[in-house]
């Protein structure tokens, strides 16, 4: 928020604040009601809610006017979702997708961070590998899918690998960039105290690169979800991808939207989890 928080409803306090005889910095108690309102209903939150309601209303309005075979209003999507939860179909699909997503993302994080760090730590290794990594980065992963099927079949393995490949490079390149961009003073300080190589990595380089690593993880998380859906729709027809494809072929648009929303929610939740970890780990930033 760029604009300063000025509030019109405090005329009494103002007089005192502007009085040069009072200290320049003062601490004042925020009334409980005001604090609650700021925490629960800040202005942007209210606007966001309004936007959401408007969008849903518009969707409902046009959805009811359109044919049932091509479109579905939110009310029917909600009903479909309830049915699918009651039959257990949705839970099964989400579980199926989630297992692959988490496996693939974790694998990408582990490989990406370790290779990225290794490339930054051993400069020669990094410079040698860099052009190859950059070349692989621009290969569209979808072109590799037929080969994946030939090598690994249609089970969980190729899905996990596709998800991993989707997320890997963002994580790897950000970790590499992080190590290369550590403030030289941070290194110098540790060196002047005679830090061992291991301590230099643990206590100076590692915390200094965390912001970069988390940027990589956040982008990686959203790409992992894309990879997951691609794999599920393109070859291993299963999980939420299957929910979407099969229901589209029978024109059950309400159920298609349930699948789309479930996928989006998974992406949002994974991203939010990464961000929550980031805030916890990097407390010094607030």
């Amino acid at each position: 928020m760029v604009r300063a928080r000025t509030r019109r409803s405090e005329p009494a306090a103002h007089n005192e604040l502007f009085d040069p005889a009072t200290p320049r910095t003062q601490t004042r108690v925020i009334p409980v009601r005001l604090r609650l309102r700021r925490a629960l209903a800040p202005r942007d939150r209210a606007l966001q809610l309004a936007l959401l309601v408007t969008a849903l209303a518009a969707w409902e309005f046009f959805g009811r006017r359109a044919s049932n075979f091509t479109f579905a209003p939110p009310s029917r999507v909600a009903t479909a979702a309830r049915e699918m939860i009651e039959s257990g179909e949705l839970q099964d699909a989400v579980t199926e997708s989630l297992v692959a997503l988490l496996l693939g993302f974790t694998l990408a994080a582990v490989i990406g961070i370790s290779v990225g760090y290794a490339m930054g730590w051993w400069r020669t290794f990094g410079r040698t590998l860099n052009p190859f990594v950059s070349a692989l980065y621009v290969v569209p992963i979808a072109t590799l899918v037929p080969a994946m099927i030939v090598w690994f079949g249609l089970g969980l393995t190729p899905r996990v690998i596709v998800i991993m490949l989707f997320a890997l490079f963002e994580i790897l390149l950000n970790a590499y960039a992080g190590v290369k961009n550590v403030d030289p003073h941070v290194i110098d300080v540790a060196r002047t105290f005679g830090a061992s190589r291991l301590d230099l990595l643990r206590k100076a380089v590692f915390p200094a690169t965390l912001p970069f690593v988390f940027v990589g993880l956040r982008i990686g998380a959203s790409r992992a979800v894309k990879g997951m859906v691609l794999a599920e729709m393109l070859f291993a027809v299963t999980g939420l991808g299957r929910v979407i494809i099969e229901n589209a072929s029978t024109f059950r648009m309400d159920r298609v939207f349930v699948g789309v929303i479930a996928v989006s929610l998974m992406g949002v939740i994974l991203s939010a989890a990464v961000q929550a970890t980031e805030r916890r780990v990097m407390r010094w930033r607030d």
Partner: peptide, 18 residues
């Protein structure tokens, strides 16, 4: 090489923000 017998105070304090 560097060693703790010669401590350095840097220009921009160079504290670890974390």
């Amino acid at each position: 090489g560097p060693g703790p017998d010669r401590a350095v105070v840097f220009q921009q304090s160079a504290l670890y923000p974390w």
